[in-house]
């Protein structure tokens, strides 16, 4: 037996409620985050990721309280992303009970922030989230560009180069989201996932586009991801985490069965 591949349900949280957007619009309510997290834990989730999509900073306190409540009842790793802009934001989330934080936009505007965060809190709790979109007309070599602000703003940065740089700066893990696939239910961008996974020495979490359980297996087998993240297929109880693990197991992938 060896290290298991991880299944990570992601909860997009807005004003203290779980929501799921399709390409970051058309938001549907999917419940109370504490209850949803407890259900995933019971079903055997390997970690849980919360993405705080609340825009205003006064509502950020709501997220802190959600994390506190979950951490008192759910004893698996918890990651919080969204709105992490400075060391104080990280400290507050770790103190609330998060084990890792996801840094996205703030890493692009100030890459050195990642270095400072890793030095202060350790690489093990610094996840750099990368939102990447395909560029070019398809005739040239594959190329992906980093986007920020929930996929609205291009940066001109090459995704592979950026991932490598973030690992050099101290990222302990990469959360890789395909903006082309997010919300489409067409499956991960496997070429992107594989390219990044092979380019960096730290674990890569594939994200964006999962519509069925086979997509999760594809992300691991073809995309070479160390972990797979999905939101909507779990929220509306189409599939349980346990269904997902059984599917991976049937394809020869090592998983943790709770």
């Amino acid at each position: 037996m060896s290290l298991a591949k991880r299944i990570i349900p992601c909860l997009d949280v807005d004003h203290g409620r779980v929501v799921k957007g399709v390409k970051f619009v058309d938001i549907r309510d999917a419940g109370n985050p504490v209850e949803v997290a407890r259900r995933y834990d019971r079903e055997g989730a390997d970690e849980i990721t919360f993405l705080d999509i609340t825009a205003s900073s006064e509502d950020r306190q709501t997220m802190v309280s959600v994390v506190e409540q979950v951490a008192g009842q759910v004893f698996i790793p918890l990651t919080v992303g969204g709105g992490i802009r400075n060391l104080e934001d990280i400290r507050r989330m770790l103190n609330a009970g998060a084990d890792k934080v996801g840094i996205n936009t703030a890493a692009v505007s100030d890459p050195d922030f990642v270095r400072r965060a890793a030095e202060r809190f350790g690489s093990q709790c610094i996840v750099v989230a990368i939102d990447a979109k395909r560029t070019g007309n398809g005739s040239e070599a594959l190329h992906w560009e980093i986007f920020t602000h929930g996929g609205r703003r291009g940066t001109g940065l090459d995704a592979l180069e950026w991932a490598k740089k973030m690992v050099d700066y101290g990222a302990g893990e990469i959360l890789l989201t395909s903006m082309d696939r997010d919300g489409t239910r067409e499956g991960f961008d496997l070429e992107l996932t594989r390219a990044v996974s092979e380019a960096v020495s730290v674990p890569v979490i594939a994200s964006g586009g999962v519509g069925n359980l086979d997509h999760l297996a594809d992300g691991i087998i073809q995309g070479k991801a160390d972990a797979v993240l999905a939101a909507s297929i779990f929220h509306f109880a189409e599939y349980s985490i346990e269904d997902a693990k059984r599917c991976l197991l049937s394809k020869g992938i090592e998983v943790r069965l709770a």
């Binding site: 037996m1 060896s2 290290l3 298991a4 591949k5 991880r6 390997d46 690489s123 093990q124 302990g172 893990e173 996974s197 092979e198 020495s201 730290v202 674990p203 070479k224 160390d226 972990a227 943790r256």
Partner: peptide, 16 residues
């Protein structure tokens, strides 16, 4: 690693 790709470090996740 087991699948022939370079071993990821840190060792992160659930192991037996």
């Amino acid at each position: 690693g087991a699948d022939g790709s370079p071993l990821k470090i840190p060792h992160m996740g659930w192991n037996a």
